[in-house]
Amino acid sequence: MTRLILLRTILGTILGAACLFAQNAAPAGNAQNGRKLFENYGCYQCHGREAQGGIGTGPRLGPKPLPYAAIQKYIRQPTGQMPPYTAKVVNDKDLADIYAFLQSVATPPPVKNIPLLNN
């Protein structure tokens, strides 16, 4: 049991490092086109038009997305409820544009500066 946890931790670190590397290697993308694709390919349905996430439908994806490689891996072969987006329907160039969009979405003001969220 403990060994399993240890193994997971090591694996996690390696994967994390790989992802960090991959993030640096994220292909350049067009955020404007990415926004369009995010709509047309239906990502908005579960993740919100601003990638803000939806309760019970999908998590927030931006403005600080997971590393590109992790996203690429996840959408091709999701392990949860998300429908798969294989390379046949979303190619890497499209995904790079979507990634650029995710990086570009607005960061909200802090909660303390939004009076309605302090009720």
């Binding site: 038009r49 803000q52 909200p108 003001p109 909660v111 939004i114």
Partner: peptide
């Protein structure tokens, strides 16, 4: 979570 897309 609620603050994201606040002005959208």
């Amino acid at each position: 979570d609620a603050s994201y897309a606040w002005d959208a």
